[in-house]
């Protein structure tokens, strides 16, 4: 009797186990590509999906790069005039930027092109503009609004979507991958990370956060599912003049690099465009205003703040998803 149980139940069960194990050996096909776009390096790693998946995602990024390039006077973004109908690829990131601007009391501002230009962050001919120059540029930077999908703006308005472009491009590229049957992928657009699904083995993606003092190193690892992870930090672009370092994140209140006591802010949230814009806004706002925004719940997000005093603060959603690896920084404090 027991022999029959063995032959009829246990042996077939073992056979199935063995088959499954063999399937696990033959892993899902992994494709990856590294390329340059939007003045940075981009990497896509996709599991499964068609052969064209990565090529199409790459093409989507290239198109947005041409369209949204504020430094190119002939780009669709630069050529926009008062009354023009906005194409979807400009309207969507612009709407997200405006939503963040409204929620953060104007910390995110897409009309700061003349200011960043005056500091030399586009041409790399860096200089420190005088206070009066900054005040004049701030005053004349123009105003805009979007009504019925049309742009309404004053003369001199120059839109720069650089604060959300990479996050938006990552979302569009991820969508292309999904359309091509990709079930798991990780995209890094110059440090703007976007994930799709989970790893083939079902585990979380491991996304490390750059050390703002030594960007080759890392501060911690975050274990995340399908989401966007974006860091804004003063270390990403800066120049030094007369012993003082000036970084690229311009505070719309002063027209000068934000001095908020932070080294970097990392935002984790489902929408890549929001994560990108919000990381910039939170960097400008500093710890206090940033935590107030989180508590208000007006935009749902998780974040990791690193201060100039090497303090690390995280929202509860990240506290159990992080592993610290760098002793330069203090143990993370969970905000409540």
């Amino acid at each position: 009797m027991r022999c029959t149980v063995w032959k009829n139940k246990v042996l077939p069960f073992l056979c199935v186990c063995l088959l499954l194990l063999c399937c696990a050996c033959g892993r899902t096909e992994k494709n990856s590509a590294s390329f340059f776009a939007m003045d940075t390096i981009m990497q896509i790693t996709a599991y499964g999906g068609t052969d064209e998946a990565i090529a199409e995602a790459r093409e989507a990024i290239r198109e947005l790069d041409v369209l949204l390039d504020a430094t190119d006077a002939k780009s669709t973004l630069s050529l926009l005039k008062n009354g023009d109908l906005l194409p979807k690829t400009i309207r969507e990131p612009l709407q997200t930027a405006q939503m963040i601007a409204a929620a953060t009391d104007g910390a995110l501002d897409v009309t700061l092109y003349p200011l960043s230009d005056a500091w030399g962050f586009y041409t790399k001919n860096y200089r420190v503009p005088a206070q009066t120059e900054l005040q004049i540029l701030l005053k004349n930077r123009g105003k805009f609004s979007v009504r019925d999908g049309r742009l309404s703006c004053t003369d001199g308005t120059k839109l720069d979507l650089g604060c959300v472009a990479k996050g938006y491009a990552a979302m569009c590229a991820a969508e292309k991958l999904r359309q091509n049957g990709v079930q798991g992928a990780v995209l890094s657009l110059g440090g703007n990370v976007q994930t799709i699904g989970r790893k083939p083995d079902g585990s979380d993606w491991r996304v490390s956060v750059a050390d703002p003092l030594h960007p080759d190193g890392t501060v911690c690892d975050l274990f995340v599912g399908e989401t966007a992870v974006v860091t804004s930090g003063s270390y990403q672009r800066s120049f030094t003049e007369n012993g003082k370092t000036y970084h690229h994140i311009i505070d719309p209140a002063t027209g000068a690099p934000a001095e908020s006591g932070l080294l970097s802010v990392t935002v984790v949230c489902a929408d890549g465009t929001t994560a990108d814009g919000l990381s910039t806004a939170l960097f400008i706002m500093g710890m206090e205003r940033g935590t107030e925004l989180w508590k208000s719940g007006s935009i749902p997000f998780d974040a990791l703040w690193i201060t100039e005093d090497a303090d690390v603060y995280v929202t509860p959603g990240l506290a159990e998803r992080m592993e610290q690896s760098n002793e330069t920084y203090k143990k993370a404090i969970c905000i409540k």
Partner: peptide, 10 residues
């Protein structure tokens, strides 16, 4: 390598 993270934000 087997111990590297999947991506780096920053």
């Amino acid at each position: 390598t087997k111990d590297a993270p999947d991506a780096k934000a920053g």
